[in-house]
């Protein structure tokens, strides 16, 4: 279980993770904001579709890829939260079909 030991002083922002609003600290990494709220699955594995989660937390494994504000392939461990940010699990696998949404 992840837990925060953060000193309680900074500005708070609200982001959504898979549609659920969560509170986060401004400047916190997207990964830590997710993980502290129990959302540890970042993406699906490309072939098997299995759950994946952050592994290195320093930008070299690319396991933490999420979609941020509709843009896929964002590294949750490197990106910082900002007010209103919408984060979703990256579902793209080898067999995902595009919808016509967003055209």
């Amino acid at each position: 279980m992840f837990q925060s030991l953060r000193k309680p002083e900074r500005d708070r922002v609200t982001i959504t993770v898979n549609g659920h609003p969560i509170e986060a600290i401004a400047g916190q990494s997207v990964w830590s904001a997710m993980a502290l709220n129990g959302q540890t699955i970042t993406r699906r594995a490309a072939l098997s579709g299995e759950d994946r989660s952050a592994y290195c937390a320093m930008g070299v494994c690319f396991e933490c890829l999420v979609e941020i504000d509709g843009l896929p392939n964002q590294q949750a461990c490197l990106r910082r939260v900002t007010e209103g940010m919408a984060v979703t699990t990256q579902e793209i696998t080898e067999t995902t079909e595009a919808t016509n949404a967003g055209l």
Binding site: M1, Q3, S4, Q28, A35, I41, D51, Y55, A57
Partner: peptide, 21 residues
């Protein structure tokens, strides 16, 4: 999921004061 590196534990601790119990 749940397997990370020890360096990741450090990074999470240093930059986000986050730990895994």
């Amino acid at each position: 999921p749940g397997v990370m590196t020890a360096g990741a534990a450090q990074v999470m601790l240093k930059s986000d004061a986050m730990v895994a119990k």
